[in-house]
């Protein structure tokens, strides 16, 4: 009798399937909501033209922006916690090919337009940063 019960408690294939499904969902959810390992919306994409910052876009918020610089127009898109150059009429297209960036320190550079997008931000779990008023 007791032997039978312990046999029943042994995990079978269906149990493993469920465990695998839950883990997969958890991983997907993490990837979806915390791309790049950020834990909240503290990071922002800093857009600079000719070395001068023109805009800071918070990464937690969808945004579409167009920038015209040195004769080229780039469309920058913020979504799902990352930023990319969605479209550009520059000849090299390196900026578009860089794809999505979402981690602090990563950057997209468009040399023809002399436009850069870098990820700047507070460490995970912070909302705002003070003391960044270094001459830029």
């Amino acid at each position: 009798m007791s032997m039978n019960r312990s046999v029943k408690l042994k995990p079978n294939a269906a149990d493993l399937l469920i465990v695998a499904a839950v883990l997969l969902l958890a991983a997907l959810a993490l990837f979806r909501f915390f791309p790049g390992g950020a834990r909240d919306g503290a990071q922002s994409a800093v857009v600079s033209i000719d070395g001068k910052i023109v805009e800071r876009l918070p990464l937690f918020q969808r945004a579409q922006r167009s920038y015209t610089a040195n004769g080229y127009t780039l469309r920058v898109s913020v979504e799902d916690g990352g930023v990319r150059v969605a479209q550009s009429d520059c000849p090299t297209q390196d900026c578009v090919h860089t794809g999505v960036i979402s981690r602090r320190g990563q950057s997209i550079v468009c040399l023809p337009a002399r436009l850069t997008v870098t990820i700047e931000g507070a460490p995970d779990g912070y909302d705002l940063v003070v003391g960044q008023g270094v001459a830029e």
Binding site: A42, R104, G105, A122, P123, G125, Y126, D127, L128, V129, V130, G131, Q132, G133, V134
Partner: peptide, 27 residues
Amino acid sequence: GGDVCLLGNKPDGSPWRVAIRDPADRE
């Protein structure tokens, strides 16, 4: 631009968390 004003709490009711940058290292 590096200084902040906080109005109320965060939408979830908890206080804002403000990091103070180390002038020696921006990271």
